[in-house]
């Protein structure tokens, strides 16, 4: 009984051990056929890459990330387990990036000479390559979270701008804008009306021009006839007589013009004199109004007027006295 129990229990345990080992190896993708190859890549940061993430070459899984360790102050080194022999690019590099929207990451082996079109990635690859050693240079693409955060910041900026626009574009602004639009509509109507009027005027002008052209054509024809008649008149000597008369008349007109010109010059001079007289009169009148000057003082000061009147009366009596008694004032002698 005991031997039977041991056999049954042993069989069960072995089956369970096989299930564990085989299942664990199968699920992890580990193969027992050959010794795996190990490669190392150097990154500034590995982002969300972690041990167990797949390593892919042109989209095909070729291994997995075994370990990630910090190297010094600058670098992180990720060790990859490569399950089989593959022809990697001689200038191989590694890009760590999100493999899907659900958070899993992968390390993709690419050619360093054909990096993704991202200046940060190119710079990281160059820096990791320049650091030397026999490791693949690596760079990390931003993950979904970073892109989402960036999109969030952009959305926040847009919301801020929208808020500002909303603040600036309040109900009053709408009313003003409606008024401006209505005004603009009125102005547009006016311009339209004006344009129509101008168009009609231009049409009229065009008609007038056409009419004028017709008249000018008629005039030209008449002129042509006149010239014809002029030719015939020239042949009879009448034109010479007319020209002589016209010359004489012209000389007379020239003389008259000269006279008029001289007369105008005199008038100009008189005008200047009149201006000066008027200026003087104006000055005198100003003095009179202001009570300055002799006349002004005479006008404004009654005492002086009285004194003047008295002086004049005395002068008149003196003159009468001189007339009456000349010997009193004048004495004549020959010798």
């Amino acid at each position: 009984m005991r031997r039977r129990d041991e056999l049954i229990v042993g069989f069960t345990v072995v089956i369970a051990l096989i299930a564990i080992l085989a299942g664990a190896l199968w699920l992890s993708g580990t193969t027992m056929s050959r010794t795996p190859d190990f490669r190392t890549a150097r990154f500034r940061t590995v982002g969300g890459l972690s041990a167990g993430n797949p390593v892919v070459l042109r989209g095909v899984r070729v291994g997995k990330v075994v370990s990630i360790t910090l190297e010094g102050d600058e670098w992180v080194e990720a060790q990859f387990q490569i399950n089989d022999e593959y022809d990697f690019p001689e200038d191989a590099a590694v890009i760590a990036a999100s493999a899907s929207l659900f958070g899993e990451w992968q390390a993709e082996i690419i050619s360093r000479l054909q990096p993704p079109n991202d200046p940060n990635v190119i710079a990281d690859l160059a820096a990791a390559f320049a650091a030397g050693d026999d490791v693949w240079p690596g760079a990390t693409l931003p993950d979904i979270g970073q892109l989402t955060a960036q999109a969030g910041r952009i959305a926040t900026d847009i919301a801020t701008v929208s808020s500002r626009v909303q603040t600036a574009f309040d109900s009053n602004a709408v009313v003003h804008m409606q008024g401006a639009i209505e005004n603009f509509s009125t102005v547009t109507d006016q311009i339209n009306s004006f344009a129509l009027e101008q168009t009609e005027a231009m049409d009229g002008l065009g008609v007038s021009v056409m009419s004028g052209v017709g008249i000018m054509t008629d005039a030209a024809e008449m002129l042509q006839g006149t010239i014809g008649r002029l030719d015939s008149a020239t042949s009879q000597g009448e034109i010479d007589s007319i020209i002589q008369n016209a010359q004489a008349l012209s000389a007379e007109i020239r003389d008259v013009a000269i006279t008029i010109s001289e007369l105008i010059a005199v008038i100009h001079n008189n005008q200047a004199s009149i201006q000066r007289v008027l200026q003087g009169a104006d000055s005198v009148m100003s003095d009179l109004v202001a009570g300055t000057g002799t006349v002004g003082m005479l006008i404004s000061d009654s005492a002086l007027y009285i004194e003047t009147v008295r002086t004049v009366q005395e002068m008149r009596s003196l003159v009468e006295d001189i007339k009456a008694n000349p010997r009193k004032y004048f004495k004549f002698s020959v010798f």
């Binding site: 229990v9 069960t12 345990v13 089956i15 369970a16 051990l17 299930a19 564990i20 299942g23």
Partner: peptide
Amino acid sequence: LMFPVIVTLAIAVGL
């Protein structure tokens, strides 16, 4: 000792 064995086989069957 046997519970892990049982659970291992149970996991396998469940999968």
